[in-house]
Design a binder for these strands. Sequence first.
DNA 1: CGGGACTTTGAGCAGCATCAAGCGTTGTGG
DNA 2: CCACAACGCTTGATGCTGCTCAAAGTCCCG
Lengths: 231, 231
Amino acid sequence: MSSCDTCLVRNRAICSALSGAEVEALNTIGRHRTLEPGQSLIWEDDESILVANVVEGVLKLSTGTEDGREQIVGVVYPADFIGRPFGGRTGHSVTALTSAKVCVFGRRDFDEFARNHPALEHKLLERTLAELERTRSWMLLLGRKSASEKVATFLIDMSERLVDTGCEGDGASLSRFELPFSRQQVADVLGLTIETVSRQFTRLKSEGVIDLPSRREIVIRNRDELEAQAG
Amino acid sequence: MSSCDTCLVRNRAICSALSGAEVEALNTIGRHRTLEPGQSLIWEDDESILVANVVEGVLKLSTGTEDGREQIVGVVYPADFIGRPFGGRTGHSVTALTSAKVCVFGRRDFDEFARNHPALEHKLLERTLAELERTRSWMLLLGRKSASEKVATFLIDMSERLVDTGCEGDGASLSRFELPFSRQQVADVLGLTIETVSRQFTRLKSEGVIDLPSRREIVIRNRDELEAQAG
DNA sequence: CGGGACTTTGAGCAGCATCAAGCGTTGTGG
DNA sequence: CCACAACGCTTGATGCTGCTCAAAGTCCCG
């Protein structure tokens, strides 16, 4: 039995475009790999030699300046696609935030397979268009929002995306979840410093908008207010 | 004779994936349209009903907050693709910066045509992946760079992209060009205020790094220094 | 129980925004 | 042909947001 058949993300990942036999063929060119938190799969400015699908866990895409400032440019969840097929370089590194499982393909193998399976390319195109849209809307946050708006928007976004890292995707949202980010990483997503993020968190807590049972746990107590503060 | 045959961007746009007969077929579902500076083709949060290819001119993609802050999330040049095929909404408006010519398609017509022409979808995928990469690298600028780094990076980027709005694309760069942006629009690209942009321009001029013969003209006098300041 | 990493809190400062004139260019009508 | 209005840009003065530097607190791990 093909391992993709039992894959948790089978129905949402790009391979949902394929028949059973095709999935099996794709399976022969890919291999599963486990990543520990902090472990990188791809480095910035690498020649693109591999692509992958997320099976489990959360990973960050990040770039930085020479003098060490970092910006997280994307976060990927189960069923998301990673890497840059069809030539070109990835301008960012890919690093696991939680322990993660990915399905890795050699870039050349994947390129060839994709070119022979238009339905897969179509899925990948839809996914890439959606990701581009999401990324663009994040630019408004980075360029124009204040620290408090940034943090509020971030918490809303996380509560929506952390729902269902399993199979169904129904656009719900959580009022209690575990952040896959450290404070520094939240800062790197929002273009802020760790101190500013921390201060915004404590302010929201003292206002009763959220609760912080532990470092990584968030409870949203007043979603309307949080949305109001998101700008 | 099909009008696309004579189209200036014929060899670089996504339709370069098509045969003569296919281009002719695509041509029957599209129509050319002229835009004046400031005129919009698509509005934010519109249900996506049309897509287009840029033939001539420069257009901006922009979003804003309810209270009027604006962020330009992308700039498109000849041969670039505009819009959101395959369902979904465009989260940004599309507005001409210069007078522009575009080749417009009804979204449903285009969707259907694309699904039947995998080579075209492939080209569109490559283009979308490249655009996503470019957009992500811009996030580093918005989130982590200082005003002076932003302006320097912007000028370098413009000098590279304004080369060849015609047919060949050889990755050269210009040392003299006309900005398709007002100061306010530069500010909206960089996430700054108009005053800060103006001050950075005058500083660079007084340092002899650039020259400003007129409001819209830029001359790069010391590209090395500009690149050094880009961070 | 102790060491180290992460987070919070505080004080002071700088960079950029805001508010407010002044200037130059372009276009219009007398 | 000139006056002047409108617009976009520049320049200046001031203040606030978020950064920097510093220290204390908390959690997690052995």
